[in-house]
Simulated scan of single mutants.
Amino acid sequence: MGFWGSFVVCRGDTPLDDLQAVVERHDGIDEHEHRPGGWQIGRYPGPELADDGPALLADLAEETGAPALAGYVLDSDTVFVEGHSTGGGYWRACLVRAAAEAYCEDDDEDFAAEFPLPEAAARAAASWAGDAGLTPDPAGLLEVFAVEDADFAEELFFRLLDRLGV
């Protein structure tokens, strides 16, 4: 059985578990990682944060004054990635596309319209990174979004963060 839960990424001095945007939506952080430039990554078990993704990210961006990103992991098979920045707004993509589509086949949404192909996903991610003052690796982003199979999709999410410059 793989991991079911969320990774939340933001920049700021206030710890993730003290940010109102997170506190009002989840009981507590499972793991916490700090990266250079004031970036922090929190791991949260369960689906609570995924249920309110766009609002969570908008609230985080407003509260921290910096772009925010989240990855919602489904049984380590796929990751739904969402980002928000004040300049670029909200965007959405997925890692391990075929697995993501399989999880969505009973939904009443148009998967292709909701989740861009790897090229468009890489452009959206690079734009988000630019808004965050980061230097992304466009070819590396495309490579990550194009991966078709992964034992642990959350490892791809961390590769994505590296390619974004986080």
Score class of each variant (00 low, 15 high):
residue 1 M to K: 12
residue 2 G to E: 10
residue 3 F to T: 10
residue 3 F to K: 12
residue 4 W to Y: 14
residue 4 W to V: 15
residue 5 G to P: 12
residue 5 G to A: 13
residue 7 F to P: 13
residue 8 V to F: 15
residue 10 C to A: 13
residue 12 G to K: 05
residue 13 D to F: 00
residue 13 D to Y: 00
residue 14 T to G: 01
residue 16 L to G: 13
residue 17 D to Y: 03
residue 17 D to T: 05
residue 18 D to C: 09
residue 19 L to C: 08
residue 19 L to A: 08
residue 24 E to K: 10
residue 26 H to D: 14
residue 28 G to N: 14
residue 31 E to P: 00
residue 31 E to M: 08
residue 31 E to L: 10
residue 32 H to D: 15
residue 32 H to P: 02
residue 33 E to Y: 15
residue 35 R to T: 01
residue 37 G to F: 03
residue 40 Q to D: 10
residue 40 Q to K: 02
residue 43 R to S: 08
residue 44 Y to E: 04
residue 45 P to W: 13
residue 45 P to H: 14
residue 46 G to Y: 00
residue 49 L to E: 14
residue 50 A to T: 08
residue 52 D to P: 00
residue 54 P to N: 07
residue 54 P to Q: 12
residue 55 A to H: 09
residue 56 L to T: 03
residue 56 L to I: 09
residue 57 L to C: 06
residue 58 A to W: 15
residue 58 A to H: 15
residue 60 L to W: 04
residue 60 L to P: 04
residue 61 A to R: 01
residue 62 E to M: 01
residue 64 T to E: 11
residue 64 T to G: 09
residue 64 T to D: 11
residue 64 T to R: 06
residue 65 G to T: 07
residue 65 G to V: 03
residue 68 A to F: 02
residue 68 A to C: 01
residue 68 A to L: 02
residue 71 G to H: 05
residue 74 L to H: 04
residue 74 L to A: 06
residue 78 T to K: 11
residue 79 V to I: 03
residue 82 E to G: 02
residue 83 G to A: 09
residue 83 G to L: 10
residue 84 H to Q: 03
residue 84 H to Y: 13
residue 85 S to W: 05
residue 85 S to N: 06
residue 89 G to Y: 12
residue 89 G to A: 04
residue 91 W to R: 08
residue 94 C to K: 08
residue 94 C to T: 13
residue 96 V to H: 04
residue 98 A to H: 00
residue 98 A to M: 04
residue 98 A to G: 04
residue 100 A to T: 09
residue 101 E to M: 12
residue 106 D to R: 10
residue 107 D to M: 09
residue 108 D to W: 11
residue 108 D to N: 10
residue 109 E to N: 07
residue 110 D to A: 12
residue 110 D to I: 05
residue 110 D to C: 06
residue 111 F to E: 13
residue 112 A to L: 05
residue 114 E to C: 08
residue 116 P to C: 11
residue 117 L to F: 00
residue 118 P to Q: 09
residue 119 E to R: 15
residue 120 A to T: 10
residue 120 A to K: 13
residue 122 A to S: 11
residue 123 R to D: 15
residue 126 A to Q: 05
residue 126 A to P: 02
residue 126 A to R: 02
residue 127 S to L: 09
residue 129 A to N: 09
residue 130 G to I: 03
residue 131 D to P: 02
residue 132 A to E: 10
residue 132 A to M: 03
residue 136 P to W: 01
residue 138 P to H: 06
residue 138 P to D: 12
residue 139 A to L: 05
residue 140 G to E: 11
residue 140 G to W: 14
residue 143 E to D: 13
residue 145 F to H: 13
residue 146 A to V: 05
residue 146 A to I: 06
residue 148 E to Q: 13
residue 148 E to F: 00
residue 149 D to F: 06
residue 152 F to H: 15
residue 154 E to T: 04
residue 154 E to M: 02
residue 155 E to V: 03
residue 155 E to G: 01
residue 156 L to W: 08
residue 157 F to K: 10
residue 158 F to Q: 07
residue 159 R to E: 15
residue 160 L to Y: 12
residue 160 L to T: 03
residue 161 L to P: 06
residue 162 D to F: 02
residue 162 D to T: 05
residue 166 V to E: 08
